[in-house]
Amino acid sequence: MLDILLDILSWILLLGGALFLLTGAIGVLRFPDFYSRLHAVSVCDTLGAGMVLLGLMLQGGLTLVTVKLMLIFYFMVFSGPTAVHALAEAAQVSGLDPVEDDREDG
């Protein structure tokens, strides 16, 4: 019983992660400028990959695999936002301004 419950939970997490990754990818394609695209990417990175990793941890159970996945999770949580920060910083230093949307809301 517990097995099935864990399986269902892990699949929900995996599919949810996949959904976030998909929205992130669509965001990168659709957003108008560099900074808002970055925003989409960072959602992808932390939430999408994080949920996939959590789902995999539930699949792995109490094994060495889960420990390794937790280490990967730890690295993702730190490196993802840092990479996005560095990118935004670099864009700002090189003089890229955000696109402001002047359109009236309709």
Partner: peptide, 19 residues
């Protein structure tokens, strides 16, 4: 000249370097 801006990167890099 903009070295101080790297502070986030440097902290994280220091955290990751031994790992």
């Amino acid at each position: 000249s903009d070295y101080h801006k790297l502070v986030v990167l440097r902290v994280i890099a220091k955290l990751f370097f031994p790992l």
